[in-house]
Amino acid sequence: MMLETASTDTAALSTAAPDLSPAALERLAAARYGIEGVATALGGERDQNACIETADGARYVLKISNPSEQSSVVDFQIAALDHIAQRAPDLPIPRVLRTLDGENTAHLTLPDGSLSMVRMLTYLDGVQIKHTERTAAQRCAMGSGLARLDLALQGFDHPGAHHDLLWNASAAHRLRDKMESLPDPAKQQLARRFMARFEEHVLPRLHEVRTQVIHNDYHLYNVLVASAEQERVTGIIDFGDMLHAPLVSEVATAAAFHMTGSDDPFAGPAQFVGAYQAILPLTPLEQDIVADLMATRHLITALISEWRAVRYPHNRAYIMRHNPAAWEALGQLADLPRQDARDRLLSDIRHRSIA
């Protein structure tokens, strides 16, 4: 079963996203949801996403799933959003709208004859953190926000949550073959070094850590803040990479995106992890491997983006948006002993304990 789900995920990353015209999207929204408006494209890796804006200014997100996406995974994502809305109604997440027939999804035959699932979500206002000036207070708000999200997801499960997503840092060893296609020998050597670190220090210990459903993509494009209060989170979006996985992988994945934006590449991640742990502490074992997994997230970002950019050059800008930072971070981590990386990542926690 593991091999089947892994190959399905690879197929989703190897299959082009749907490409319906704005007019077709507008007709779809009106026919299935009774929402008439103008469609504007939104970015996406596997799915086609669009904003539907009505005449009175109301906005919605229309998602057309990749034809290779398993229906159980789409059902899982919808069930998770509904669960969070009930468990923690104050968390700023999208809400799932029902079709005119009262269904969670609609089914659509694409022009090439393939079948796809359609979803409509509420639109969240705010500025992507990527486009703001990063501050310690903002990082702390992100860290505490993710901890609250993970607390809301504790105890939730679904059959579709156990798909083996390639964007799963705890399964990085499945990407070993992607290293062979790296054209730059220096990058290939760097990738091999961090793959070996993952396989030696992380992989044999993962059976001992906590697992649950995680967001798995909590980065600077997927968290929104108020334009006038850029330390106040107004939206958590893009739940498309959710899965059941080690909780420490959630923290490491999110922390990885805070290595840029300051002179000390560990300052931002340490502030983020410290705020997360103030609400949802990591265990001693999780603390020991969180920095290794942070490096592993950079590794899989580099490998998957390089692989997909070659396959889909028309979507290269979107696919490669995290690639330069990933290679930069791996370079910064290359000569640092793993214990030193761990101590620097956890430094904010220790300062809080002393205080």
Rank of each mutant, 00 (worst) to 15 (best):
L3T: 10
E4Q: 13
A6W: 13
T8A: 15
S14T: 09
D19C: 14
L20W: 03
A24Q: 15
Y33D: 01
E36L: 11
E36Q: 15
A39H: 07
A39L: 10
E45C: 07
E45L: 13
D47T: 12
D47E: 05
N49C: 04
A50C: 06
A50E: 01
C51E: 13
E53F: 01
L62D: 03
K63A: 05
N66W: 01
P67E: 03
P67K: 07
P67F: 12
S68F: 03
S71M: 06
I78E: 00
A79C: 08
I84D: 00
Q86R: 15
D90W: 09
D90N: 08
I93L: 08
I93T: 15
P94Y: 08
P94E: 02
R95T: 07
V96D: 00
L100F: 05
L100H: 03
H107Q: 15
D112C: 12
L115N: 11
V118W: 09
M120W: 10
L121K: 03
V127E: 12
I129Q: 04
T132H: 02
E133C: 06
T135E: 01
A136I: 15
G143P: 06
S144I: 11
G145E: 02
L146K: 04
R148M: 10
R148K: 14
A152L: 11
F156T: 13
F156G: 11
P159K: 11
A161E: 00
A161K: 06
D164T: 13
L166T: 12
L166Q: 07
W167M: 11
N168I: 03
S170I: 06
A171K: 15
A171D: 04
A172G: 02
H173K: 10
L175S: 12
K178D: 13
K178E: 11
M179W: 00
M179H: 03
E180D: 15
E180K: 12
S181M: 13
R193W: 06
R193L: 15
M195F: 14
F198K: 09
H201G: 06
L203I: 08
P204S: 11
L206E: 03
L206Y: 09
V209E: 01
R210M: 08
V213K: 04
N216K: 10
L220Y: 00
L220V: 14
V225E: 01
E229Q: 14
Q230H: 14
Q230K: 13
Q230T: 15
Q230V: 04
I237D: 00
D238Q: 06
F239M: 05
D241T: 08
H244E: 07
H244G: 01
A245N: 11
L247T: 09
L247Y: 05
A254L: 05
A255Q: 02
M259A: 07
D263C: 02
D264Q: 06
G268P: 04
P269K: 09
A270W: 07
Q271F: 10
I279D: 03
I279M: 08
L282K: 03
E286H: 08
I289V: 13
V290P: 02
L293V: 04
A295E: 03
R297A: 09
I300P: 00
I300N: 02
A302R: 06
A309H: 02
A309W: 02
R311P: 00
P313D: 02
A317R: 15
I319Y: 02
H322W: 00
N323W: 15
A325W: 01
A326F: 10
A326M: 09
A329S: 15
G331P: 05
A334M: 10
A334P: 00
D340C: 05
D343C: 08
L345Q: 03
L345I: 10
H351F: 09
A355C: 07
